[in-house]
Amino acid sequence: MEYILNESPYKTTNGFKINNIKLDLDIPEITYLNPVNKKFNSKIGLEFDKYDEYNITDDLTIEYSNSIGRVININVDDEGEYDILLKSLDDTKCFSYIKINTNIDNKKIKINVINLLNNKTDSFIAYDNKVNNKGELIINHIDLGGHFKVNNLYTELYDNSINKVNTIYIGDDNKLDYNYHIKNIGEKTISNMITEGILNNNSYKQHKGIIDFIEGCKKSIGEELENCILLDDKSISRSSPLLMCHEEDVEGAHGVSTGKIDKDKLFYLLSRGISEDEAKKIIILSNFNKIIDNINNLTIKDMVIEYINNNI
């Protein structure tokens, strides 16, 4: 059955075709699907009448096997850093739906989500955040495994709060769709999105990033950067950075770069006796490192580096 999970809240011309993509997903037990024309549906996603609910106070590993799907609602309330690991235990096709909710008031929370699902498993991850009163939310979304991947993020920022969203993706014969929307609502808020990724082997990536300055968010700052490396001619990269500005006293910027691996960097490494494959790997890892370095758990960090080394 086809579902639209990721409609952009801002309409674009029909020719742009970025407002949504339809995904053919085998999702069990759906009782209600948001109407596709609902204005801010990136805020939510699908709703289920049966799901697992966690109020996490520690790291969480979610395991998938035997073609069984999981629908999980996660609430993060306490200050701290949390690693959420998604892992396939076998090579059966599963479905993963994760919704992560935060409501932060004058706290610092860091969430590291590591997707290590097998290449048959579809995943949908939605972040729904409200950050208030000097609160700070950092999300490191490391999207390494999985088949069809849809990731939505919706954040409301009030008074002096911060939301940083760092994303790494690897496209390898799969489809990826990111729909991030951060609203700077209060004064002196900071929104920051950094996305680094590679596409290989006939993969398709769509990245919509919206920095939304609402009237009254004086002295706020918003920044979005995306860097995509294409490793083959069959992959397609679509990026749609949107900067909506309804307040004068703000600083907003976005930048996108897409292309192949920098020739000069490659030449330098080759001239030092490193093989081409190894040199490419080093360059890609160096791009990813600034995000991976944000993860404090060394075991998780090593696991991520090892996965990247083995799968590029």
Partner: peptide
């Protein structure tokens, strides 16, 4: 109000694409 809405589609690995925008 000032909105910037961009869509970039790249189907070829040998391109050099860069884009920057600012508001203030």
């Amino acid at each position: 109000k000032s909105d910037t809405i961009l869509v970039n589609t790249i189907e070829n690995e040998s391109v050099e694409f860069s884009h920057e925008a600012s508001v203030g």
